[in-house]
């Protein structure tokens, strides 16, 4: 028998994609809600988007912190390549 796939939204808001050799064999987490395939795929995409958005938020904060360190080092008279190396600032210098 081929494996089957189903989607569940848990009580905490996470989204599960469950693949089973026997339908239902993996049970249902307490407080979980079974989703249709269409609902599950939409919930999955939304959850992935929120994970990506959080990563982008952190990335932007990293960039801002690195840029501030980079500028501070330049203002302190540190040569540009050294300031870039120390700060971790990765943006290419303006031409």
């Amino acid at each position: 028998m081929p494996d089957t796939t189903r989607y569940v939204r848990t009580a905490s808001g996470s989204v599960m994609e469950i693949v089973e050799s026997d339908p239902g064999a993996a049970g249902m987490p307490e407080g979980g809600q079974e989703l249709t395939d269409e609902e599950g795929q939409a919930a999955w995409a939304e959850a992935e988007a929120r994970v990506t958005a959080y990563a982008e938020q952190l990335r932007a904060a990293d960039d801002a912190r690195h840029e501030a360190a980079y500028n501070a080092l330049l203002e302190a008279g540190i040569p540009e390549p050294v300031a870039r190396d120390i700060s971790g600032y990765q943006r290419a210098p303006a031409p």
Binding site: T10, S14, S21, A25, A26, A47
Partner: peptide, 15 residues
């Protein structure tokens, strides 16, 4: 016999 399940769980709230 052989039985298996896999679960891929995504946490949108980044706990």
């Amino acid at each position: 016999d052989y039985a298996q399940s896999s679960v891929n769980e995504v946490f949108p709230d980044n706990p």
